[in-house]
Amino acid sequence: MELFKLIVGSVFIFTGLFIFGVATIGLFRFRYVLNRIHVAAKCDSLAALFVCVGLMFFSSSPGPIIKLAVIACFIWLTNPVASHLVSKIEVETNENLEDECKVEELP
């Protein structure tokens, strides 16, 4: 049972770390801000969820498990708001937005 927990937990943690690594690579490989937000903020929210689930397998008592779930919920609630605000600033302040992406319609 202990070995099973260890294996499942480490698989989850390493998946999350792999996604974190991909997000960091994506920060450098994409050229414009709006594309970088896609890679970065989104990959991060799933990666944080994976690491939290992986750490749940490592802890034994119920208290930390519920707290980890609450932390994952907070990350999922706050992360989209933050990335939405960043994209809104980018759209409002960038002068040469047309070169970077095809704009069909704007508010």
């Binding site: 991909v22 490989r29 050229r31 990959c43 799933l46 095809k102 319609e105």
Partner: peptide
């Protein structure tokens, strides 16, 4: 999210990420 993330990871690790995407703002 998992499905779209796999697509996203493939996009990041592809040869030319900047040429293969076509970003757009749609309503």
């Amino acid at each position: 999210m998992c499905i779209a993330n796999i697509h996203m990871i493939a996009l990041v690790l592809s040869d030319k990420p900047n040429e293969s995407i076509r970003p757009a703002i749609v309503k």
